[in-house]
């Protein structure tokens, strides 16, 4: 049947309404969160006439809860909300910084974490490497129930994901680690990053790195963990110089993406500088106190 009861923008009042609408409209509808990606479709010359299932009224998806065990962030939380709510938590700093320095103030006020991670075409997302580095899991809901998934698994299947499911929450385990996010933009600020990096580490005896998760975005089409580097830094003191030296030996894991803003070689070339920046931030802010 052609005639649907849905207007071209449907304000769902709750999750079920949204899921039902997505199921009924199938390919002719997509979820709408902060709209900052979707509304630029005409500029990308996308002409599909799709119904927007607006999630913004679903209050339950907006909340951020942080306790001793985990931080649970609703998919509709905006970058601004996240930066504010996570401020002061050393282990969550990578996400707070990624959210607090991306884009520009008005966009941070509008764009959501759900939208940031669900946009498959967007290689330079800041929140994605942060979530990878913080070992976040996603909660995904469909009409047939909910499940959770690791970021890595989600990213792998993202491009072909069914639009009938919704990302509802991000769950980040709390740890004793410290983390940070570093990004390089061609201007001082306001651009998409040409490369970004999130680091989360734990220090063991003698201030040596005992555990590390590091993720890199924008360098390739999809952000990923930098596993060779993670392994190589275990047992070292986290000095920026040392870390940068090690990073230089671990670059073969990446195949730099050539795009209009920067060639692939440049993204790789600047990555080690980002490593140094990230570790000096870690040193200055958090580790400094501990050491």
């Amino acid at each position: 049947m052609d005639i649907t009861p849905y207007p071209k923008l449907f304000l769902a009042n709750d999750l079920n309404e949204a899921l039902r609408a997505l199921r009924e409209l199938a390919d002719s509808a997509i979820p709408l969160a902060g709209a900052t990606w979707v509304m630029r479709a005409p500029l990308r010359c996308e002409t599909a006439d799709r119904t927007l299932i607006d999630l913004s009224r679903i209050e339950a998806l907006r909340t951020i809860n942080i306790d001793q065990q985990e931080a649970v962030i609703g998919a509709l939380a905006t970058h601004e909300q996240i930066a504010n709510a996570l401020n002061g938590y050393n282990d969550l700093a990578a996400l707070a910084q990624a959210a607090g320095h991306s884009a520009n103030p008005a966009i941070r006020r509008m764009a959501t974490i759900g939208g940031n991670i669900c946009t498959a075409e967007f290689a330079a997302a800041d929140l994605v490497p942060a979530l990878l580095a913080l070992d976040a899991r996603l909660e995904i809901e469909g009409l047939d129930g909910s499940r959770t998934q690791t970021m890595a698994a989600f990213l792998e299947a993202r491009a072909t994901r069914a639009h009938t499911d919704l990302v509802t929450r991000l769950i980040i385990p709390r740890t004793q680690r410290t983390s940070t996010h570093a990004r390089l933009t061609l201007r001082k600020a306001g651009d998409y990053p040409v490369a970004n990096l999130s680091v989360s580490i734990a220090l063991g005896a003698g201030g040596k790195i005992s555990a590390a998760t590091v993720a890199v975005g924008a360098v390739e089409a999809v952000a990923k963990r930098w596993t060779g580097f993670e392994e190589a830094i275990i047992g070292h003191a986290p000095s920026p110089e040392k870390m940068q030296m090690i990073a230089k030996t671990c670059l073969e894991e990446f195949d730099g993406r050539d795009a209009m803003d920067a060639p692939g070689w440049y993204r790789l070339r600047v990555l080690t500088g980002l490593v140094a920046n990230a570790f000096s931030t870690l040193q200055e802010t958090t580790l400094g106190r501990a050491m």
Binding site: L43, L186, R187, K188, A189, G190, D191, Y192, M260, D261
Partner: peptide, 28 residues
């Protein structure tokens, strides 16, 4: 430092908007 229109092999400009054509911002 930043502004350049480049022309691709179709003879068409690459920088079609503000995302790709980087104007100086206040912090620059």
């Amino acid at each position: 430092l930043h502004e350049e229109i480049t022309i691709n092999d179709q003879g068409c400009f690459d920088q079609t908007g503000f995302e790709a054509y980087r104007l100086p911002l206040a912090q620059d």
